[in-house]
Each structure stands twice: as structure tokens, then as C-alpha cells.
């Protein structure tokens, strides 16, 4: 088994994830790109488990399991934030989010919130 093949796969996937996070405007797509990066790290960990002889056997795979659990927690909280953003602003475009002013849900955006209400 040549470890360079999965290592290069993981490196390319990580680059794609970085590109997606910086490029995409839609918050859900940003979360998908974050998943790509986390999976690249998982692949690195599992491959390192075959190339590095550690004191504890299978440490890399145990770490990969931990990263999967972290990713599940991250996606839960991240989607809660995205849905709350959609409820307040009726958009999930990340570059529409004001970072400096405190959030004023509904200032001049009554039509938007009325839309979400009517949609339910």
C-alpha cells in the first residue's frame, strides 16, 4: 500500500474545502465545505495510523472517530444558527450578516418576517 495516494487525496480535499468556505455565500454550502475539510483530516488520521507505528495501536482511527463525533455536534449547532439566521433575516447569505452592529431583528424587514410567518 502506498500511503502517498490517500495523503494526496486528503490534501486536495482540504484545499477544496478551504476554497468552498471562502467562495460560497450560502451558509448551508459553507457548512458542507467545512465537512469536506473535516473528512480530509479524518483521511489523514486513518492513513497515519497505517504509516506511523504508535505506542498505542489504532490511535489514529480512535482520533478519527472523535473527529466524526465533533463534526456531528458542529453540524447540529451550526444548522441551529443558520435556521435562526434565516428566521430573523429571511436569507442565509453569509456576507449579508452584519458583524458590527447588534442584531435588530426586523428593522425595516417586516415583509421578510411576515413571509416566513405566512409560509408556515
Amino acid at each position: 500500500m502506498r500511503p502517498v495516494i490517500p495523503y494526496v487525496t486528503a490534501a486536495l480535499l482540504f484545499g477544496l474545502g478551504v476554497y468552498g468556505v471562502l467562495r460560497r455565500r450560502n451558509a448551508v454550502l459553507v457548512l458542507m465545505s467545512v465537512e469536506l475539510m473535516l473528512n480530509a483530516v479524518n483521511l489523514i488520521l486513518v492513513t497515519a495510523d497505517t504509516t506511523v507505528r504508535a505506542v498505542l495501536p489504532h490511535s489514529g482511527q480512535v482520533f478519527a472517530l472523535f473527529v466524526i463525533v465533533l463534526a456531528a455536534a458542529e453540524i447540529g449547532v451550526g444548522l441551529a444558527i443558520v435556521l435562526q439566521l434565516y428566521r430573523l433575516r429571511a436569507t442565509v447569505a453569509v456576507d449579508d450578516v452584519p458583524l458590527t452592529e447588534p442584531p435588530h431583528p426586523g428593522d425595516g424587514r417586516e415583509p421578510a418576517t411576515a413571509n416566513t410567518e405566512a409560509g408556515r
Partner: peptide, 19 residues
Amino acid sequence: LDRPGWPAALIGGGAGLGL
């Protein structure tokens, strides 16, 4: 869905190719 993204391509490609 997209921002105009030369910086994204630069940083993403740099990270991927560097690694």
C-alpha cells in the same frame, strides 16, 4: 451562491497544493 473569488481560489489552491 458564489462570491467573486480569486482570493478563495488562491488560498484554497495554495493550501491544497502546498499540503
